[in-house]
């Protein structure tokens, strides 16, 4: 590399940039393909086929949908607040994409897996995602959108409280916010076992943060048309749509990283590609779990969602946090 004349710093920056672009593209393509995966899996679990006409096993359905959504009229209704209406889908997409910089997808791979505030950045970005929903719902100037946005905001704020607390157990055990350190800390055992309660609550909070079924109250069709994005169409709607899938991938990747050891696995240190395979399998397991949840579980009432968050999950996380803290202190003190 230096032969071409770059300083090592520039070279490192270039490499990081290439990595980032590769990860970004991989992520977006994965998110897009998830549309097809989800429809096929839902079909499988509902004893039907799902899209199976376009391309092999319907794989090109995504392409067809993309062509459709790109060529649809990008309609901005006359009654909306234009600026906020335009910004909302961008915020939705970018916050989840940004959070992915933290994830070490393979040994030595990742945009910034060593960032020392890692998890905190994720929590901050997850909190920012609320703005996408709020802006979209508020600027739409429509009652369905507004109601959806209000629900969404309340739900996300509530669940973020214990989302952060849930992951603190992991941080305590690893002694670092950086995800690469957390992965490294699991060499001798995945955190899912000692942090089972933390895993459960983080999983629940993750579903809520991406407002997937069964926590899809912000966009409950039966009550609110399409919730906060009722007034959106064309590619702006498409961005909300893809953001949801990016969120699914992100939460699944974090779950895999925080609780299942990320890319860790036999031989992963020698062959980074194998590490990526481990990481992918673990992530995909959670993605499938997300889809299975959607296929299986009914949507709770709004008050039940809030009750479950504040009265059940929060205490459980606190108990977990106390237990972990006591355990860690005992180990250190001992």
């Amino acid at each position: 590399m230096s032969a071409i004349g770059f300083t090592p710093e520039v070279t490192a920056a270039l490499i990081a940039a290439v990595k980032a672009v590769v990860i970004l593209l991989g992520l977006v393509v994965t998110a897009a393909m998830l549309i097809w995966v989800e429809r096929r899996l839902l079909g499988l679990w509902q004893d039907r086929y799902g899209p199976n006409r376009v391309g092999w096993f319907g794989l090109l359905q995504v392409v067809a949908d993309m062509i459709k959504i790109f060529f649809k009229e990008d309609w901005t209704p006359p009654f909306v607040d234009k600026a906020a209406f335009w910004i909302a889908p961008m915020v939705a997409m970018s916050t989840f994409l940004l959070a992915f910089v933290l994830v070490p997808v393979a040994p030595g791979w990742g945009v910034a897996p060593d960032l020392n505030i890692g998890i905190l950045l994720f929590l901050a970005l997850a909190a920012l995602a609320v703005y996408a929903v709020m802006l979209g719902g508020w600027s739409s100037n429509s009652k369905y959108a507004l109601l959806g946005a209000l629900r969404s905001a309340a739900q996300m704020v509530s669940y973020e409280v214990f989302m952060g607390l849930a992951v603190m157990g992991v941080v305590m055990k690893a002694g670092s916010f950086a995800l690469s350190d957390i992965v490294a800390a699991q060499r001798h055992g995945w955190f899912i076992l000692p942090q089972f309660l933390g895993f459960c609550t983080f999983f629940v909070a993750g579903i809520a943060a991406t407002h997937r079924a069964p926590f899809d109250l912000p966009e409950a069709e039966q009550e609110l048309a399409a919730g906060y994005h009722t007034e959106y169409s064309g590619m702006k709607f498409g961005m909300f749509f893809v953001a949801e899938y990016v969120g699914v991938v992100l939460v699944s990747a974090l779950l895999a990283t925080l609780f299942l050891g990320g890319w860790l696995g036999p031989g992963a240190d020698r062959w980074p590609l194998l590490g990526f395979v481990y990481f992918s399998i673990k992530t995909f397991f959670f993605i499938m779990l997300f889809i299975l949840l959607r296929a299986a579980l009914p949507r709770p009432r709004y008050d039940q969602v809030m009750d479950g968050g504040w009265k059940f999950c929060l205490p459980v996380t606190l108990i977990n946090l106390l237990g972990t803290a006591a355990f860690v202190l005992a180990r250190q003190g001992g």
Partner: peptide, 26 residues
């Protein structure tokens, strides 16, 4: 009640998952 609720939800998940091995009605 919470434990039973968790159990029934997990059971639902499992039962739905078992549909992976059923013939399709379409």
């Amino acid at each position: 009640a919470v434990l039973v609720g968790i159990y029934t939800n997990l059971r639902s998940l499992w039962m739905i998952f078992l549909h992976s091995f059923r013939p399709r009605d379409t």
